[in-house]
Amino acid sequence: MREVVLHGRTFELYLEAEVVNQAVRQLALRLKEDFKGRDPLFVCIMNGSFMFASELMYAIDEDFEVAFARYSSYEGTSSTGQLREVMPVTQSLEGRVVVIVEDLIDTGFTMHCLQKRFYELGAKEVHIASMLSKPAALKCDVKTDYIALEIENKFILGHGLDYDNYGRMFKDIYQLKDEA
């Protein structure tokens, strides 16, 4: 599909799934090499990272531990500026090397808060692996160690990313066409 319409807003094709998949496979090779023998805990941030996390874990193809957590800071097309913990990590982070698996680094607010929180919970190291990053949108001091693709500062959906909980299951990524 070249365009999709959700909640009266039009989105146009931005990245085809195969472009994203290839970038994820390359990222997986780096992660596999960098964390081999270090017993990392990959913490997948739901709901957005579910597709990326699945593809990444399959491509890494190692016996690393995986956990899931859920935080929310978005409403509609913008950040609320507040992080809400919906489902915390249940595994102990004490002394662990943690890799946060995120779908998109936008303002960096969520990752800034999570890095700080995971260190407070005793993590030895906290790294970030993101499918996408918008460098022009970054507002927080956060270093993303692993990025599959850098993109422009447009609102997007698909491949796990949503617009008010819809659009996550599109395999391609679409950008908001009617954005002012």
Rank of each mutant, 00 (worst) to 15 (best):
E3Y: 04
E3R: 07
V5I: 13
F11I: 03
L13I: 12
Y14I: 01
A17I: 10
E18N: 11
E18V: 08
V19L: 15
V20L: 08
N21F: 05
Q22M: 06
Q22E: 12
A23E: 10
V24R: 06
R25P: 07
R25E: 12
A28G: 12
R30M: 07
K32Q: 11
D34G: 15
K36M: 15
K36R: 15
G37P: 10
D39Q: 11
D39T: 12
P40A: 05
P40C: 15
P40Y: 02
L41N: 07
C44A: 14
I45V: 06
M46Y: 05
M46C: 07
N47E: 06
G48W: 04
F50R: 03
E55G: 12
L56M: 09
F64L: 06
V66N: 15
V66M: 15
F68I: 09
R70V: 01
Y71D: 04
Y74M: 07
Y74E: 12
G76K: 13
S78K: 10
G81M: 03
G81C: 08
Q82E: 14
E85K: 10
M87I: 09
P88H: 14
Q91E: 10
S92Y: 14
S92A: 12
S92M: 08
V97C: 15
V97T: 15
V99K: 03
V101G: 00
E102R: 01
D103C: 02
T107Y: 05
G108L: 01
F109M: 12
T110M: 07
M111W: 08
H112V: 02
C113W: 13
L114S: 03
Q115L: 12
Y119V: 00
E120G: 11
L121M: 12
K124E: 14
K124Y: 13
H127S: 13
H127L: 10
I128M: 01
A129N: 05
S130G: 09
M131G: 02
L132K: 02
A136Q: 10
A136G: 09
L138F: 11
L138C: 11
L138T: 03
C140P: 03
D141K: 12
K143E: 14
D145Y: 01
D145N: 11
D145K: 04
Y146T: 02
Y146L: 04
I147N: 06
A148T: 14
A148P: 08
A148V: 04
L149F: 06
I151W: 04
K154C: 01
F155Y: 05
F155P: 01
G158N: 01
H159V: 11
G160T: 06
L161H: 06
L161Q: 00
G167L: 04
M169R: 12
F170I: 11
K171H: 13
K171P: 06
D172S: 08
D172H: 08
I173S: 02
Y174L: 05
Q175A: 09
L176Y: 11
L176E: 11
D178G: 06
D178H: 04
